[in-house]
Amino acid sequence: MRAIWLREFGGPDVLVPGTAPDPTPGPGQVVIDVAHANITFVETQQRSGRPGPFQVTPPLIPGNGVGGVITAVGPEVDVVLTGRRVVSATGGSGAYAERVAVDASAPIEVPAALALDEAVALLADGRTATMLVETVGIHPGDRVLVEAAAGGVGNLLVQIASRAGARVIGAAGGPRKVELLPGLGAELAVDYLLPDWADRVRAAMGGIDVVLDGVGGAVAGAAFDLLEPGGRMVSFGLASGEWSPVSAEAATARQVTLVRPDVPPARLRAYTQQALRDAAAGHLRPLIGQRFPLERAADAHAAIEARATVGKTLLDVS
């Protein structure tokens, strides 16, 4: 089968097209014929060898999320699963390929009303966005600042928070991304690359109640300063390359709660299923900003690292 190999750490060009043996399902496993593979920012960090909680060891086929059709089952697995459209995590590797074997309990069936590419776009990001909104607690009338609002998670956060009745401020980097935000449900859209972005938010909203921090670094610090007493802040990304610098002591002094989700795996699965149901019902629309054929995985990584992407980036495998 066709696959993308990571044989050494480095820039995007270390992702090299090649071949790999077709997987055979072992006991308790199924094989998925992959139509689309999910790409996350974390995977670009893994490829570069950057230290972090999800490090990998080359050589391997990268990727941790796919969507496709179950085409084979192993011993002790019900053959009724064959032919089902599913999305699935792959256990940390193996997704940038035509086929992958996973534990039979891993795949999640895709609702009939939902396109498979949209389901893949929601596999990780929809789960994260749904979890964050529930964990931080968003109520009608809350002033909610979403950072990296044109990103894979951020665009979903804007939609979910807006649907919950919040007044959403979307912050994104650059005019092209900012222009997308009103269409997603943002009442105010600002460019966090401009020095007066926080002043614009304060002038329009007075202060804010919730920060959903996907940027970290100085942007997270400025967002924290906008929070009113009783506000909540949760960090889910580091588009700046740095996590939020806000300390627990600073939050306590400002009467702000730093929310740190701690969710068991079973609950994460439920969040994915919820995101898929919401999308199938028309309540959530993943923004697929760009797609690349499998052989151009290196170009996909380069685009993400250059901050040239909006929404979700997919690899189209078949």
Rank of each mutant, 00 (worst) to 15 (best):
T257A: 14
G151I: 08
T257N: 09
A302P: 09
L287A: 10
F292K: 01
A218S: 13
T24G: 12
P58Q: 02
A251C: 13
T128V: 11
G67I: 01
V263P: 05
A97H: 03
K177G: 11
I70D: 07
V168T: 07
G10P: 08
L284I: 10
A101I: 04
P59E: 01
P286A: 11
F236Q: 12
S244A: 07
E98Y: 00
A275F: 08
P140N: 08
V210P: 09
V317L: 02
E179R: 15
R267C: 00
G237K: 12
A298V: 09
V201Y: 11
Y96N: 06
D33I: 00
Y192E: 07
L294T: 04
V110R: 02
P111R: 10
G137N: 07
I138R: 07
D209W: 00
A101W: 04
A198Q: 04
G141Q: 06
R84T: 14
R277C: 04
Q290D: 15
D142E: 08
I160C: 06
A115Q: 14
R202M: 02
P17R: 04
A97M: 01
T40S: 15
E228C: 03
T128C: 02
G206F: 09
D22F: 00
L184Y: 07
V210R: 11
P265S: 09
P140G: 01
R307K: 13
D278W: 14
Q255D: 15
G230A: 08
A302E: 14
Y96F: 15
V73P: 10
G207Y: 03
V201L: 08
G170Q: 09
H301I: 02
L122N: 14
G94T: 03
A37F: 01
G63K: 06
A220L: 03
H301R: 08
M205R: 13
S318L: 01
G74R: 08
A112P: 04
L15Q: 09
V77Y: 01
V144Y: 02
V153P: 09
H36K: 10
V87N: 11
S244G: 07
V80N: 04
R127S: 13
G152E: 14
P59K: 04
H139S: 11
D142N: 11
V210S: 10
D22V: 02
G92C: 03
A250P: 01
V30P: 05
